[in-house]
Amino acid sequence: MIMTVVVGVQEQHTVVFSFDKVWGRLSITVDGQSVVDTVRVVSLSRVATWEFPVGWNERHIVRIEKHRAAFFAGFRPQPVYAYVNGVLVAQNSA
């Protein structure tokens, strides 16, 4: 699953969230630069959250949340939500 979000008006940046449910590989990049690169095999939390600033002159706070079911999460949809400055701008499901 890949979700792309463009952040900013005059100073635009591209945030890409990528998650492979089979192998647990998760990455987040901003303009091709890695922000998060990990493998999630086991998780006790039902909501994983990543929050980071984007931009230099036009500053934005991006928050990405990945939700999962309590049981058999690998076999169920895992919704992913992207927020910019607290406003939902994209959603997808892994």
Rank of each mutant, 00 (worst) to 15 (best):
A70L: 14
R46T: 14
M1H: 15
V35S: 03
A90D: 11
S43W: 03
S45C: 00
V5P: 08
T4I: 09
T49I: 15
S34Y: 08
A73H: 13
P77L: 13
I28P: 07
P77K: 13
A82Q: 01
F75Q: 08
D20V: 11
F72T: 02
E11F: 04
R25P: 01
L88V: 03
D37G: 12
F72A: 13
K66G: 09
F19P: 07
Y83N: 04
V41Y: 15
V80L: 06
V39F: 05
V15K: 11
S93W: 01
T4D: 13
H60D: 03
R46V: 07
V62C: 09
W50G: 03
E11L: 08
V84L: 08
R59H: 08
S27F: 12
F75P: 00
V36R: 07
Y81G: 00
G32P: 05
E58A: 06
V6D: 09
E11W: 04
V6W: 07
A69F: 10
V54S: 02
T4K: 13
T4A: 10
P77A: 06
R25N: 14
A69Q: 05
G86W: 00
F17W: 15
W56F: 13
Q33W: 05
A82L: 02
F52M: 02
S34D: 08
R68K: 12
V80E: 05
V42H: 14
V89L: 05
A90W: 09
K66I: 10
T38H: 03
Q33P: 07
L88I: 05
V9K: 14
V7G: 04
R59T: 11
P77T: 11
V89A: 04
Y83A: 00
N85P: 02
V9I: 15
A69G: 13
V89T: 08
A48K: 10
F72W: 08
F75H: 10
R46H: 15
H60P: 04
T38R: 12
R68Y: 09
V87T: 06
F72Y: 06
L26N: 11
S93T: 14
I64D: 09
S43K: 12
Q78L: 07
R76Q: 11
G8N: 10
V89W: 04
G24Y: 14
G32H: 05
R40G: 00
V5I: 15
S34V: 15
W56V: 14
V15M: 06
M1V: 13
R25W: 13
V7Y: 06
A90C: 00
T49E: 14
V80C: 07
V87W: 00
G55R: 03
V5D: 14
N85T: 07
